[in-house]
């Protein structure tokens, strides 16, 4: 057992076999120790507590046998300068290694993006400028516009409404199909204009009317108020009165006629999911079914096609309407992918 081994302890502790003195260790450092003394040092170092003493003596020995006289002050200044240099970037953290992009490249990319965006905007300008309401076959939607006017859109119809400034600077809407308008009168008496599919135009202040407009024909039925109708054919705009029906044919000529109350109701029947026919030939009915429900109806035989239908029919879907008609006109219904063929019974 070795005690804490200061030099004094060594002198006191005579039980220790090898008497290791500082002078032996010093001569060992100098390389003058005998092999036996070296062995003693090795043994002595086996006690971990002596290792610290070893370094203490090493320092002391070095101080007694200085090899050269360096300048610690100069060295310290150098080390501190180096530390400062290395700490500087640490204090102001360097921007993460982001790829440096030249200003030119940024501009180039910005220009490219702008070009693409404007191209896309131009290409999709309809989407950007107009909000489009569209109904599928057999579907009806009622909605309110920004100016407070309400629209009931019949099946397979499209209404385009400007997204920006509607009700403030303009009240233009674009219709393809069938719709019932209930137009709100504005304080500044702003016109509400319906651009129809055949490019005829309805100008309103505040009123209720039903419009049917497809490329081949437009008909407007006025329930309330006053409406002006014009067509691209260049006729003078005609003014409609309540209960009037205006029809714009393919020629662009506008015909206005006064409707009876019953007839008037017929034009609004679709708003209650009914269809009203009055001496309407079946081919016309077939076209109407196609328009509203997307079902193509073919009629076999001129005779059948020419027969006329009269009455009010439930019109939630094409099947219902056709089955009633088949019963009435004695024909058979044959279905072939989204096509219905009406075959007269012999």
């Amino acid at each position: 057992m070795q005690g804490p081994c200061g030099p004094e302890t060594y002198y006191q502790n005579k039980k220790m076999k090898p008497e290791l003195t500082k002078y032996i260790v010093f001569s060992y450092f100098s390389g003058d120790a005998t092999p036996l003394q070296k062995e003693m040092v090795l043994k002595w170092l086996e006690d971990a507590r002596n290792v610290e003493l070893y370094f203490t003596w090493l320092e002391e020995w070095e101080k007694m046998h200085i090899q050269f006289q360096p300048d610690p002050a100069k060295a310290l200044t150098k080390v501190k300068a180096k530390l400062r240099d290395e700490e500087q970037p640490a204090l102001t953290p360097e921007p993460l290694p982001v790829r440096r992009i030249s200003r030119k490249m940024v501009l180039l990319w910005a220009a490219a993006c702008l070009f693409l965006m404007s191209f896309a905007a131009f290409w999709q300008r309809e989407l950007l400028i107009y909000r489009t309401y569209h109904t599928a076959f057999g579907e009806q939607t009622r909605f309110r516009l920004a100016d407070g006017s309400t629209v009931l859109l019949n099946a397979n119809s499209t209404l385009k409404v400007p997204r920006w400034g509607f009700g403030k600077s303009t009240r233009h809407v674009f219709l393809d199909g069938e719709a019932e308008f209930s137009v709100q009168h504005t304080h500044d008496h702003q016109y509400f204009k319906v651009h129809n599919a055949d490019r005829s135009l309805i100008t309103v202040l505040g009123t209720e009317f039903v419009v049917y407009t497809r490329a081949r024909k437009t008909s407007v039925v006025l329930n309330k108020g006053k409406v002006e109708i014009s067509s691209p054919a260049g006729d003078q705009p005609l003014t409609m009165l309540p209960g009037d029906r205006a029809t714009v044919g393919t020629s662009g000529r506008i015909v206005i006629e006064k409707l009876s109350d019953e007839k008037l109701a017929e034009h609004s029947a679709w708003t209650e999911h009914r269809l009203v026919f009055d001496d309407t030939p079946l081919y016309e009915v077939a076209r109407r079914i196609h328009e509203l429900f997307g079902v193509e109806v073919k009629i076999n035989g001129r005779e059948l096609a020419a027969r006329t239908a009269t009455g009010s029919f439930p019109a939630k879907n094409a099947d219902e309407l056709l089955s009633i008609l088949s019963y009435m006109y004695d024909f058979e219904i044959k279905k072939a992918d989204n096509k219905v063929i009406l075959i007269p019974n012999r």
Binding site: L58, E59, E62, K63, H65, I66, Q67, F68, Q69, P70, P72, A73, A75, L76, V79
Partner: peptide
């Protein structure tokens, strides 16, 4: 600072025993 000043010289002296170059030792 104290540590540096106290140990710099003996450490240099020790290092030079190995590398034999004043500059390298420092």
């Amino acid at each position: 600072d104290l540590l540096f000043c106290h140990y710099y010289t003996p450490l240099c002296s020790h290092a030079v025993r190995y590398v034999y170059s004043r500059e390298v030792a420092e």
